[in-house]
Computed example of a mutant assay.
Amino acid sequence: MTTQRMLDGKVVVVTGSGGGIGRDIALMMARHGAKVVVNDVGASLTGEGHNDGPAQAVVNEIKSFDGQATANTDSVADAAGAGRIVQNALDVFGRIDCVVNNAGILRDRFFHKMSEEEWDAVLKVHLYGSYYVSRAAADHFKEQRSGAFVHMTSTSGLIGNLAQANYSAAKLGIAGLSKSIALDLEKFGVRSNCIAPFAWSRMINSIKVDSPEQEARVAKIKQMTPAKIAPLAVYLASEQAADVTGQIFAVRNNEIFLMSQPRPVRSVHRGEGWTPETIAEHAMPALRKSFHTLDVSADVFSWDPV
């Protein structure tokens, strides 16, 4: 008797899955029974160039173990391309059950040196891309009263990192987008969650290494393989996660974290209201005890990955 796999009968779109984290997610989705749309524009980290090589290569890997997959080379960075990605799933496999918004690029630069093009390009792929593909799938999920979104956020946005204002803003925006989707589509049985992955990939490979501290950080990341992210993505796509929505998880090698979401941590009250002077004299001294420090991700996740 054949054992039922966790994603049998499911159709999953994985954007940016020609390599790195996306590739491992696509492979594991297929191994657990999903039919996969492998999307990758075949571009460099900066978004230049175009070919269908990476996506088709992953499809070939999936077919080598008798999985089902199709390659797609549309860009997530415009609404029409995102619509074609979702339509690809419908045309080839007849339905869509999960979207993994994984596509991304990096254009790291200190904020005071960042160009409009560097800002816009990263926002377009990460934040707009996640919106466009999710929006294209939402009506189908609503109609069938089921569906799952898995979005890739980052501790660069949730906590902070140097020289990544564009990436950090996009990734924190994705966390807000995911929560809004979870709230708006809950009544239709649709779920939306985020993963903040720690993993060495072709995108992370572009991190500037210009100090001993950065070198040590990159050495840590290299220990964490993209394959470690895939099990959580597969779970979140499955019916076993039917009651999991609106959450932010982080995966760091063999560790899975549930991340906090912004909530009040301390308050002050003055019956007669506030003036700038009383804020300086009373409010800030009282609130200062709970101020957040200027941490970067490596300060918070300071221990070696296990």
Rank of each mutant, 00 (worst) to 15 (best):
V300F: 01
S44W: 14
T15Y: 04
M284E: 12
A169M: 05
N193S: 10
S178D: 07
S238R: 02
V13H: 07
S154K: 00
D66P: 06
V86F: 11
I229D: 01
V14Q: 04
I25H: 00
N161A: 09
G20V: 02
L27E: 07
K220S: 13
L158F: 11
E255C: 03
M224Y: 04
P264L: 12
L232Y: 00
A216S: 05
S44L: 14
V300A: 02
S134P: 05
M284N: 09
A169W: 00
L106M: 13
F110G: 03
V100A: 14
H140D: 03
M224N: 04
R31F: 11
V14P: 02
V244W: 02
A148W: 01
A230N: 01
D66V: 12
E143V: 08
F110R: 11
F249P: 00
Q144E: 09
Y131T: 05
T225S: 11
L127Q: 00
G22H: 03
K228A: 08
Q261V: 08
S267D: 13
A280D: 13
G273W: 10
L287D: 02
Y132V: 02
A77E: 13
T245G: 02
G271L: 10
G67W: 15
D108G: 02
G273L: 06
D24S: 11
R263A: 14
S130Y: 04
I221W: 02
Y131H: 13
I159E: 00
K208L: 08
V306I: 12
A298Y: 04
F65A: 15
A216H: 09
E116W: 12
I105Q: 02
R31L: 13
F188G: 06
R31Q: 13
Q247C: 10
S156V: 00
P264Q: 11
A165P: 00
Q261M: 12
G81I: 11
G104F: 00
E118C: 03
E48G: 07
K10H: 13
V150R: 03
E116V: 06
L258R: 12
G33Q: 12
N39R: 12
R252F: 07
F291T: 06
R107E: 13
P197L: 14
M224F: 03
Y131E: 09
K124I: 01
R107G: 07
Q240F: 07
Q223A: 10
I279R: 03
S192H: 08
